[in-house]
């Protein structure tokens, strides 16, 4: 068969249903002093996975609350031990070094767990990254990059994305990743342009008049006579730094989807518009703040819907032909670790 069909990813979750799930999750997590949060996580991930479809076939998430809880208990115990022992200075340094060694291992475990617990069309994903490779892309390359003043960062970003994509499997079908470094430089340059441009504009608007009037320094300088010292940094973060981050992510996402493929000739396309993503992210943040958090479920659903709508898969033949293999069990230890460290390892969709 050499028919090629392109499917748009569909997300059919809605804010009302998710609000109910979210608030009940939160309530039960609070009254159980956080214990229920393991089941809450499972329920949320199931909701988003099950409502995401390609060609009418669902994703699903299969971890159990018990698995997640056991992982979290171990990580919390380790964390408490770590902070108490860190109070003893020499031990603290040894622990910090050990932490660096264990980090890549736990990140791999987390990627493996999340891949194994995610299915599409009834078949599970898999992840086979190795320790040394993870150590290289997450630790060694970023440190070496320092010596290039981060000018070589796009190479590091590409290496990380390649590691992430290439080591994933769908059943037994391997993902592949083929990309020049150009798109990664493009992402960095556009994001930097935005940030620098906005900083220049802010400076001109706020300090231009003062500069013209000679009030930038001295007795009656605007530093003394106004609140600029507090307003300007906030403005720079909100309209220069944060949007630049989303612009970067939009370009990277499009580049990674264009570069990725699955064995059998199936390809991906992402058509996220950087400025549209910035608009959604900023209005989402505003909605969360103005509603004291109550609009959070709405913002999640809205973002998922936008990303799904801009994601396509071109199937070479049929989605029916994938098969899986028996695999060993994976514990949720790494997953709990990345949860606590705030590392995002979700299967990017």
């Amino acid at each position: 068969m050499d028919t090629r069909d392109t499917f748009q990813v569909q997300f059919k979750g809605d804010a009302q249903t998710y609000f109910g799930i979210w608030i009940v999750n939160l309530m039960l997590s609070i009254v159980t002093l956080g214990i229920y949060s393991a089941w809450a996580k499972v329920r949320t991930k199931k909701y988003f996975a099950q409502n995401t479809t390609i060609d009418g076939r669902r994703f699903d998430y299969h971890a159990t609350g018990k698995q997640i809880l056991i992982g979290r208990v171990i990580v919390v115990a380790a964390l408490i031990l770590y902070s108490v022992l860190s109070a003893i200075p020499v031990v603290g340094i040894i622990l910090a070094l050990g932490f660096i060694g264990v980090g890549p291992y736990l990140i791999n475990r987390s990627l493996k767990f999340n891949a194994r617990m995610t299915s599409f069309s009834g078949l599970r994903f898999g992840f086979d990254g190795t320790f040394w490779h993870a150590l290289k892309v997450f630790l060694l390359y970023p440190v070496l990059c320092l010596f290039t003043l981060y000018l070589a960062w796009p190479f590091v970003a590409r290496a990380q994305q390649r590691y992430y994509v290439k080591n994933h499997r769908y059943g037994t079908a391997q993902f592949d990743f083929e990309s020049g470094v150009g798109p990664f430089y493009k992402a960095l340059v556009f994001a930097a342009f935005w940030a620098v441009g906005v900083v220049i504009a802010i400076t001109a608007v706020f300090f231009g008049p003062a500069l013209a009037a000679g009030q930038l320094f001295g007795e009656d300088s605007i530093w003394v006579t106004s609140d600029l010292m507090t307003v300007v940094p906030v403005l720079i973060i909100v309209i220069a730094v944060l949007p630049a981050g989303f612009i970067y992510r939009a370009y990277i996402r499009n580049a990674v989807y264009a570069a990725a493929s699955v064995q059998g000739g199936h390809e991906f396309t992402s058509t996220v518009k950087p400025l549209a993503l910035v608009g959604i992210a900023i209005t989402n943040a505003l909605a969360v703040m103005l509603s004291l958090g109550l609009m959070l479920p709405w913002t999640h659903v809205r973002m998922s819907r936008y990303l799904a709508r801009n994601t396509y898969i071109t199937v070479n033949g049929t989605l029916d032909a994938f098969v899986g293999a028996q695999e060993e069990e994976v514990s949720a230890l790494g997953d709990a670790f990345t949860d606590f460290e705030g590392i995002d390892v979700d299967f990017a969709l």
Partner: peptide, 23 residues
């Protein structure tokens, strides 16, 4: 004080996925 701040950190981290980065 040590245990109190640790407890707060752990409790907040447990619900962090549910409350989002801003909250």
């Amino acid at each position: 004080q040590l245990y109190r701040s640790l407890s707060i950190y752990v409790l907040v981290a447990l619900v962090a996925g549910d409350v989002g980065p801003i909250l």
